[in-house]
Design a protein around this nucleic acid. Structure first.
Length: 946
RNA sequence: GCCAGAGUGGCGGAAUUGGCAGACGCGCUGGAUUCAAAAUCCAGUGUCCUUAAGGACGUGUGGGUUCGAGUCCCACCUCUGGUACCA
């Protein structure tokens, strides 16, 4: 079989690598190490998607490239296997989720092996492995055993938490509760989506418009006891320590914005009887600002304390603890109605109606601490209880939200910042008249002694002043919230926590951690997975023997919440370093040798949460001395999405007439309608022969008046444009799939799939094959052009230039251009009737990271008896990459008028002289005055003439 | 709204510091081979004008800097992704 047949050689080499342990990684690196990591997949029932191999091929190329350069490479893979779909499948079919999970993992494993990735399969793991869950639980216990020392900005053992004297005086129980309140893992009530009809708690993504995604049943918001992780304690470090990471600025910014650090001030507004304000403020001068606000004040957070004089009213969130206290009898009914309505709204409902602000007056007033004037206190749901203090001072002249609200309810608008005369965009007079809102910086007006100050100076001064009189202080806030870390689900890691029971068998509020030696806490056997119809977690159905253990003669109830899917993915990169260790989550010596991850590649959808959570866990482990690096992932790259093939879509009205695409728009549900009539139109999928490009638009071939849409869509089952890697491997081979995914364009770009593109790289591999094998022979023999002779000078130059370019491109993850250079190499040598063996071998070593199977096969046919996986990467001689002569363009005016052939190292003066001597140039220069001559040696000559 | 990224041939995309725009691939056209086709090989292929030689134009739009701009600056348009009142 002299023809290139991937179906035969790919399984052959996959077997070879497996049998010879080619990619088995040593326990410890020798020489330089490189840790190349993929974001491990969730093994869905759908199997691998063409999006997966994009990142996986990129990292595989890097791994194979660097092995040839002598690095010890750690390149593992595993499975993020807990998750909702498996549990849903279990409920439907009453089979344990572990069964379907293992089946799906088997499919993924087969598909990954079929693509020839050089993973060390001995290190494979799944987050659902009992031996893995054990250490996930162990890390949870570390979090449970840690408190955050603000002054040291560091997590420390709970035993070192200083206990205040008054707590000590209260006794042991009080001390334990005090400790529990300070742990990084703590309990709190949080709202869940309880669906009575389904009898289960739903995840946010399972709720659409306040109803269950499945069945459309109503969903209630219900407070439930939950586990929280105190990620907010690490907010500052999570932000500042991004600095040294080699991540794209976009991802860093995304994380920064998510953390959302802001600086401003907390200010107390007196809400007691008006005639007691003076007395109160005098008292504050003595006592200073209390740590927690008393009931006679409303504490607000603002990033613009400089606009304090413009605060004309206040707003508190409907959930604010002072709502009742501040509501006057006349307003009680209205306030109650408003707060109830707000409570029943889902988060999304609250934000969907952004256009119109709603609110209700409490009847009470607060005193503006700087002006002494009373201002009304309102309740409105545009103020969120979860941010800042849940209360704001409203400055309608300088905050768009407050401005909208003030207009809605006729509240006064007092400008206190002059945008200044040069400020464009903001109509100054409109702002000064209180008719327009200006949120920028400027100069203070109507602000008493502060008039004339610039915003930034004002901010600083007023913070000092408020502090001095005990009415406020500088403050920092974050958008980041603590991490809701429990789920009311079966298919997740159980918490290694026991609740102490009293004599009546009820939890008494005291907790006990399972000792590490007794981990893992395994999931119990359930007879069925159907919801039990109560909001409590499904593990409440567990057998008594599991649910109620007895320790030291005391009865406990196990924690029945389970951990979210994020848990397992927060530390898998550490376990890969030492996956079989049953004494420790990772051997510290190995950890120090392999960490950090040098290159981490995955989808942008994990840019915020997964990376933030993993970094948080890593920092806690670092503080507690379990890992050696502050950050886990040194370099991060997000691969772009792969879209389906480009599609042409035309539109027809109800009567079957074509309608031009620019006359079609989408309604709120995304359905196409005619722009003019608002009537629905039909999408018609067109073949490539039905549409053509006319100018800047694509039109029907039959009617150029009718424009059609031309674009690539996200791959989706419903659209039917999903490309299945199995089919590509069957029709073209794994090497072609790998090569095509890399040749499509830059790794980070979004790119449309194209079958003819796959065909194109396949014919490149066919050409590579014929370059070395004689296709006309029946036997597998070398092409007669392959000879054991030294390359000619020209051939040598092609070889060295290719090495230079491919090496450079791989160092920069520019795979598409590296492939283009190797194509040029092949095009050149295909035309050569003599092809020196050495040159061919260089090509195979360079191409092998991209298309490993065909290269191994050809390498073997060239007479080698060992895999080329560790063959040295070819080096180039710079002298051999340069031409002796170069062609340099000569411009007169703005036009290229001649090209001259000169020695590559031609000096400036000589180059100009040769250019002047060129007949066409000389003729052109004769009648002109030369103003300037620009000479760039090796590049160009330009005569600037009049 | 806001934030980020991107607009280059018929298509995917190339283009070190500003220095020959369109590498490489797809598609298309012509030729060789073939009884024919597929496959393969060779040549051509930005647009327009011209019989030709040659010329003009050309990197979303408009301006600017420069001897020189796809690349730098300003304004705008379009698309893609993300986000949702965070005081």
């Amino acid at each position: 079989m002299p023809r290139y047949n991937p179906a035969e050689i790919e399984p052959k080499w996959q077997r070879y690598w497996e049998e010879n342990g080619t990619f088995r990684t040593p326990e410890m690196p020798s020489g330089d190490k490189l840790y190349v990591l993929d974001m491990f997949p969730y093994p869905s029932g759908e199997g691998l998607h063409v999006g997966h191999p994009e990142g996986y091929t990129a990292t595989d190329i890097v791994a194979r490239f660097q092995r040839k350069r002598g690095k010890t490479v750690l390149h593992p893979i595993g499975f993020d296997a807990f998750g909702l779909p498996a549990e849903e499948h279990a409920i439907r079919t009453n089979t344990p989720p572990r069964e379907s999970t293992e089946k799906n993992i088997a499919t993924f494993r087969r598909q990954l092996k079929m693509l020839g990735f050089s993973y060390d399969w001995d290190r494979e793991l799944a987050t659902t492995d009992v031996a893995y869950v054990r250490w996930t639980q162990w890390i949870f216990l570390v979090l449970f055993d840690t408190w955050f020392d603000l002054s040291q900005q560091k997590g420390r053992p709970i035993a070192e938490l200083p206990i205040p004297d008054d707590v000590v005086a209260e006794g042991d129980r009080a001390i334990r509760i005090y400790q529990d309140e300070h742990r990084l893992a703590y309990q709190a009530d949080a709202l869940v989506n309880w669906c009575p009809a389904l009898g289960t708690v739903l995840a946010n993504e399972e709720v659409v418009d306040g109803r269950s995604e499945v069945g459309g049943h109503p969903v209630q918001r219900l407070p439930l006891r939950q586990w929280m992780l105190r990620i907010t304690a690490y907010a500052d470090r999570l932000e500042s320590e991004l600095e040294d990471l080699d991540w794209s600025s976009g991802i860093k910014k995304l994380q920064k914005d998510w953390i959302g650090r802001s600086t401003g001030a907390e200010v107390d507004f007196f809400v007691g009887p008006r005639d007691q304000f003076q007395e109160w403020s005098n008292r504050r001068k003595q006592t200073g600002l209390p740590r927690k606000p008393n009931y006679d004040v409303l504490r607000v957070y603002t990033i613009r304390p400089d606009t304090l004089f413009g605060a004309t009213y206040m707003v508190i969130a409907p959930e604010h603890p002072l709502v009742q206290r501040l509501t006057t009898p006349e307003q009680t009914l209205a306030v109650q109605a408003y707060c109830t309505a707000a409570a029943n709204k889902s988060d999304r409902e609250r934000t969907e109606l952004v256009k119109k602000k709603t609110g209700v007056f409490t009847g009470s007033y607060a005193i503006n601490p700087v002006s002494g004037k009373p201002i009304p206190i309102w309740i409105a749901d545009y103020v969120l209880i979860s941010y800042g203090t849940g209360a704001i001072m409203a400055v309608p002249a300088h905050d768009t939200r407050d401005f909208e609200f003030a207009q809605q309810f006729g509240l006064p608008i007092v400008p206190v910042v002059d945008p200044g005369p040069q400020r464009e965009g903001a109509d100054r007079q409109q702002v000064l008249d209180g008719n327009s809102c200006f949120a920028g910086e400027g100069t203070a007006i109507h602000s008493g002694p502060y008039d004339g100050l610039a915003t930034s100076q004002f901010k600083q001064k007023i913070a000092e002043q408020l502090d001095a009189v005990g009415m406020g202080r500088a403050a920092v806030n974050y958008k980041l919230r603590d991490w809701l870390f429990s789920r009311q689900r079966f298919w997740g890691e159980p918490f290694p926590i026991l609740h102490e029971l009293d004599d009546q068998g009820n939890p008494n509020g005291l907790l006990r951690a399972v000792v590490p030696e007794q981990l893992p806490v395994n999931l119990p056997h359930l007879d069925d997975y159907k919801p039990h119809g109560r909001p409590e977690p499904p593990l409440m159905k567990a057998p008594e023997s599991w649910l109620y253990p007895t320790l030291d003669g005391r009865r406990y109830m196990r924690e029945t919440n389970t951990m979210p899917q994020w848990a397992g993915s927060c530390w898998y990169y550490l376990r890969f370093i030492d996956p079989k260790n049953d004494a420790c989550f990772v051997d510290p010596k190995k950890e120090a040798a392999w960490m950090p991850v040098d290159l981490y590649v995955g989808g942008a959808e994990h840019a915020v949460l997964h990376l933030l959570y993993a970094r948080f866990w890593h920092k806690v482990l670092y503080d507690r001395g379990h890992v050696s690096t502050k950050e886990p992932f040194h370099r991060l790259v997000n691969q772009g999405m792969i879209l389906g093939e480009v599609e042409y879509t035309g539109y027809q009205t109800e009567d079957g007439q074509w309608i031009s695409a620019q006359l079609v728009r989408r309604d709120v549900d995304g359905n196409p309608i005619a722009r003019q009539t608002g009537k629905p139109v039909t999408e018609v999928k067109l073949g490539t022969d039905q549409a053509t490009k006319r100018g800047d638009s694509v039109v029907l071939v039959d009617n150029a008046e009718i424009r059609v849409d031309s674009r690539a869509h996200k791959m989706s089952k419903s659209r039917g444009n999903v490309v299945n890697p199995d089919a590509i491997v069957q029709d073209y081979g794994a090497d072609s799939l790998r090569l095509y995914e890399m040749f499509m364009g830059p790794l980070e770009a979004t790119k449309p799939w194209s079958m003819s593109g796959v065909n194109g790289v396949r014919s490149f591999l066919d050409r590579v094959w014929r370059l070395i094998i004689n296709p006309r022979d029946d036997e597998m023999i070398l092409n007669e052009a392959i000879q054991d002779i030294e390359p000619t000078e020209e051939q040598l130059r092609v070889v060295h230039r290719t090495i230079e370019a491919v090496t450079h491109d791989l160092d920069h993850l520019e795979f598409n251009t590296a492939i283009a250079r190797m194509m040029e190499f092949v095009n050149y040598f295909t035309k050569q009737s003599v092809r020196p063996r050495k040159a061919m071998e260089s090509l195979l070593v360079m191409l092998a990271p991209f298309a490993p199977h065909i290269c191994e096969e050809l390498w073997q046919i060239l007479g080698h008896d060992r895999s080329l996986a560790y063959e040295d990467w070819p080096v180039f001689d710079e002298a051999l990459t340069r031409d002796e002569t170069v062609v340099v363009p000569v411009q007169v005016g703005k036009k290229v008028r001649a090209r001259i052939k000169v020695p590559a190292d031609c000096e400036r003066e000589q180059l100009e002289a040769i250019a002047r001597a060129e007949p066409t140039i000389a003729a052109l220069l004769e009648s002109k005055e030369i103003l300037k001559v620009i000479v760039v040696p090796g590049r160009m000559v330009n005569f600037v003439v009049k």
